[in-house]
Design a protein around this nucleic acid. Sequence first.
RNA 1: GGGCCUGUAGCUCAGGCGGUUAGAGCGCAGUCCUGAUAAGACUGAGGUCGUUGGUUCGAGUCCAUCCAGGCCCA
Length: 1035
Amino acid sequence: MPAMFDVVTSRVNFPDLDAEVLDYWKERDVFRRSSEERPDAPLFMMYEGPPTANGSPGIHHVLARVFKDVISRYRTMKGCRVIRKGGWDTHGLPVELQIEQELGISTKREIEEFGIAEFNRRCRESVFRYVKEWEVMTDRIGYWVDMDDPYVTLENDYIETGWWILKRLWDRGLLYQDRRGAPHCPRCVSSLSSHEVALGYRENTPDPSVFVKFEANEWIGGATPDIPSYFLAWTTTPWTLPGNTALAVSVDADYSVVETTDDNGQTIRMALATALLEVLTGDYTVAQEVKGSELVGLSYRPLYDATRYGAPIRQFVAGVDGQTALEDAESYSTRVVSADFVSMDDGSGIVHIAPAFGDEDLGLGREHQLAFVQPVDLQGIITGSYPFAGKFVKDADPEIAADLTERGLLYHQGIYRHTYPFCWRCDTPLLYYAKTSWYIRTTAVKDQLVGNNSRINWYPEHIREGRFGEWLRNNVDWAISRERYWGTPIPIWQCDHCGAMDCVGGVKELAERSGEDLDDLDLHRPYVDDVTWPCSSDSCPGALRRIPEVMDCWFDSGMMPLAQWHYPFENREIEQDGRLPADYICEAVDQTRGWFYSLHALSTLMQDDIAYRNVICLGLILDGRGRKMSKRLGNIVEPDSILDAHGADALRWYLFTASHPGEPRRFSDRLVQQTLRQVLLTLWNVYSFFTNYANIDEFEPSQIPGDWRPEAELDRWVLAELNQLVQVVDGHLDNYNPTDAGRRIAEFIDVLSNWYVRRSRRRFWKSEADADKMGAYATLYTCLTTVARLMAPLAPFVSEQMYRNLELKFNPDAPDSVHLTDYPVADPSLIDETIMDATRLAIRVSSMGRAARSKAGLKVRQPLASVVVRTRTPDEAKYLDWVAEQILEELNIKSLRADGGEQDLYSQVQSAAGDDGDSVVSVDGYSAALEAGYMVAVDATITPELADEGLARELAHRIQNLRKGARFEITDHIVTYYQGPDDVARVMTTHGDYIKQETLSESLLPQLPVDEAHAETAKVEGMEVTLGVQRVASG
RNA sequence: GGGCCUGUAGCUCAGGCGGUUAGAGCGCAGUCCUGAUAAGACUGAGGUCGUUGGUUCGAGUCCAUCCAGGCCCA
């Protein structure tokens, strides 16, 4: 008894298949072996961008994970040892927020009252809450990544590498403290990162729009004004006006001095940009036109003189090495300065400058050494003795406007709607507030950042010079400190007396400084804050205490190339062994400013090298209607529901092929189901067909001779297509393009099923076991095993199942998994362009022939005498001889002839079709289809002989349906009963052999079916016929 | 306001260097085929290829403008 293929039914349940394959992988430990069994293979590094496990994974997480997986699996099959360590991102404000919500608190004061130790303990616990769900999903979608030994950003070893990195930067002068205008939430009393700010933009936010008159002390040319003269400036934040210390103009722009009258009827003059005169509401005349440069330097009176209202005044002064310092001052002056950011699109072309607030204002303050007046505290309350002191800034806005109106300094006010950031946690409008933070001086390596970027292969390519390149060229120093609790503590200690600072690069160093045994210290707050030591400066009585800030969690993820190995405290060999940089990373496009940047910046700073060679930047995943998925819209798709319904391969295949990686992709259950049906089920049915007949014929792979070459036309054609497919798919995957790889495979599966198998069926059915039949088996077997390997990186489950049944079962020496085999290599000698062209012609002619038949009402089961074909070029006409047999069989026609010679049918058909282009017309007894220069004309004449033959086919078809309905096995022999008019009886006799052979009937009995037979009575070609089938004992 | 991307059939997507009559799948209506198929074939309806200009003998394709949508940033 020869070995048999496992029976493959066409009714497959992919989710069950997935489970079986997952068990198999686990049992054989395939994933671990895929890297460990090849210690000498070239390394391929995949870096895992760490997710946070404090929520359930969504479909967008599946998207990134399958794209990571497909490349890793492909590289494994190409002979690499792929390293892919899992990771978890565990720090940061989102984690804190979740705990705040659970505790029902929302301010830092409440957290500190609650206790940092307990607060952080809860944060630590929460980030692993959904780890199990993540692990199950990861497993379920077939993402191979080492989850047993992941890196975790909260572990001491991981944090220690971070300290070491910061110390290195500190030693090189790249870590510094500075005052910047930063988005600040007055309710949470904390800065927000740019990432967080992005979460809270609201469109159409109404804000006051006020045009304010600043009274000039001196006027153009240095003259003393003879009538009241003003600079007209515009703002949407009246509360910042007490902080005003300058006005900014654009030096090259045109400004106009207009004359008008104020509310008291007095003549005044005002300066504003000529391009913006339209903002003036009353009558006016233009008295003078000047360049902005002529306004620069003119002094004016502050609206609210800080010396009268008791707000602290400071002044920027030039310090050492080009830096500026901020010193306390008694008084200040205000004047017009130039700035390049002055807009001529809205406002008045004269910009109100308050260095205590906006970042541009602060920069301008440094540049021009302006005064710095801070009349607002960190809670957003106006300080000092202003009439509106004690108010929250937004509540002070109307009072300030009223006060200015009363003083005749408000020219005009209205409402301005714009996009404004709000705190994403508490909906408080954010204030831009100048305060000190810690920065990494990334601008010091800006050229290297840009230069190294040019060595990265971006997919899609435009990200390199577009979004990412643009971001790098506009690089600003990286604000890394957060005034928060749950994060990597910044390892800087400062003397509480003299202010001396010390940066600590590791736990051992800290133990040496403090003289304590710190082996068991949790490096988080508040424990690390308890470590102190006496100041070592001369006779300073102070103690060094850690500064309160923690690090931006993007720093955590950006340092993973080193920190995942606890470098340099362990694993120093990673410098040389190929683990730096990564060969491949993949995340969604929102990581451009996130992980992609933090990796790139830290790698450039630390190694002056790239962090990754190849990166796929994925587009967002949208719902079936093109909307972003969000909890609020309730359109989030749970991965489980898709996986349970259609299986992992269908989901993967859809995600790979629906659109190119960089494009947004719409997602719906229906689209996944369509992929399943069109690609996986079609392949599965070919596979099922093959195994069914191979078992009947006791075919097994070892029967294929070692030097076998395809001979039959169809075999040579499909193997040409297959080998070309191997070349193309390999090229696409090598180029990080699973999308086109998958699409090409799907096209091949389509022609394999709908042309190769469709046209070859009879070769498998026939009873004699000749060379042609062996050729068909060898060919289809080769196609299936090759496709299984080709698609293994994309659809790892179904390909594994096919591999095991088709190859492993017959070759115990083969690797136990398709994922441990080598990726297919094309045999170029089998790629025959000519035969591919010829077959394409056959497919086209067949399609047109069916159209011609269909139009004339000639069903395919009715044989016809002849078909006339006209090709577009004479070259193609030569192909007709080769493929005529395929065409005739497909179209059920007896003879084919090329058009031309004496009776040129084409010209008659053309004139009949007229201007109609592609169409089907009837000419001279033919039904002819025209398309793009081709013509296929079928002879519509049905002779009595042809009619009988058609009836024979019809009867055979009916008998086949009865067999099928009776659920007979394909190989069962039967007896057929029939009862009908003379025509039926005649055909049953004259075409009896044909019908018997087709239906495996041992005899055709002209009588009513016996009771045991399966029978039906139906109209056949208008005649009432009774047919019955009965199984006979197999011989 | 700036940067990047996208716009082709009702939906999802193809359309190498500009070149014959712009395609496929799904969906809809109908016809056919089927002893692998949960499939397949054919016909039909459905397109100002986002807009307006320009380059060209010729533009879905190249350039510019505008419009709409998305993402990122200010």
